[in-house]
């Protein structure tokens, strides 16, 4: 927890928007690089890959957003936010400019169990804009201090079209990296697209990452998650080695307000990271 402000978990920490990157052609996905206005706050904000924080735009309110930067990115924290026309906070965040002041509260949730995954092969499967915390994870895994602790890293990431892929420069770099095996796919390419076409679950079946001594981290829209479970199970991944992250509306982020409850678990506090085994118990496998 954050030192100094731990006494009041409902108050946000003031941050400045340092940099805004428009990620996609539809311009409804933006990455916000935030700098803490007080040094002590940055020191206190120690997150793990897979955790989220509550972002607040002045006067609009808060919403939970997965942390897209790695704990190894010590200078800043990044969040990629999708704007929904019906979403009050996401719309307000998208109208921000560099230099504006907003608020951050967190980090919250359990994060991916990376410590328990040391010495194992890691399979990362992502779809659409749910790739954000997986991006944080890849950045972390590839960091020179962490890379030696993990074995083979395989990642499959897909989006609807080339223009909808997030973090394009990093994807290029990762595809050329000897430290990992990166597969990028789009549902449908365009004139300039020379890469792979096909849905993520299909590509997963083609890449066939081995299940021995491996863990799969899967994030994507509910439909993709549903269709990805079968190929993973077919490849031999046991349900407790398939790890995913759930999304629900949240307000407090700390397991009190009741919004994100699923079958007695709070996505904000007990999750957002759950194994497929847990999800089958909680909601009968519904994401």
């Amino acid at each position: 927890m954050i030192e100094g402000v731990a006494t009041n978990p409902y108050l946000t920490l003031p941050v400045t928007v340092e940099k805004i990157t428009v990620e996609n052609d539809a311009r409804d996905l933006k990455t916000f690089r935030l700098a803490f206005r007080h040094k002590a706050d940055r020191k206190g904000f120690r997150h793990e890959c897979g955790q989220f924080a509550m972002l607040s735009a002045p006067g609009a309110g808060e919403c939970p957003v997965g942390i897209a930067s790695s704990p190894t990115d010590e200078e800043y924290v990044e969040f990629t936010v999708k704007r929904y026309p019906t979403g009050v906070v996401t719309s307000a965040l998208h109208s921000l400019e560099e230099g504006d002041r907003i608020g951050v509260r967190g980090p919250y949730g359990n994060g991916f169990p990376l410590a328990a995954m040391e010495g194992m092969n890691i399979v990362i499967v992502g779809g659409g804009f749910a790739f954000t915390t997986l991006r944080a994870t890849i950045r972390y895994l590839l960091h020179e201090r962490s890379r030696p602790r993990f074995k083979k890293i395989t990642a499959i990431y897909g989006a609807r079209s080339p223009g909808e892929l997030l973090y394009k420069e990093e994807l290029m770099a990762w595809q050329g990296s000897p430290d990992m095996d990166m597969h990028v796919t789009v549902d449908k390419g365009d004139k300039t697209w020379t890469g792979r076409e096909g849905f993520v679950p299909t590509v997963l079946g083609e890449v066939k990452p081995g299940a021995a001594n491996a863990v799969a981290l899967v994030c994507g829209p509910p439909a993709m998650l549903r269709f990805t479970m079968k190929p993973l199970l077919d490849l031999g991944f046991p349900p407790n080695h398939i790890i995913t992250s759930l999304e629900r509306r949240m307000s407090c982020g700390i397991g009190k307000c009741g919004r994100c409850s699923i079958g007695g678990q709070y996505v904000c506090k007990d999750g957002p990271v759950f194994t497929y085994e847990q999800i089958m118990q909680l909601s009968g496998g519904q994401f």
Binding site: Y10, S56, P58, G59, A60, G61, E62, S251, C252, K256, C257, G258, R259
Partner: peptide, 10 residues
């Protein structure tokens, strides 16, 4: 019953 919401108002 203790469900609640946090809201920012201008």
């Amino acid at each position: 019953c203790h469900c609640f919401g946090l809201y920012d108002e201008e």
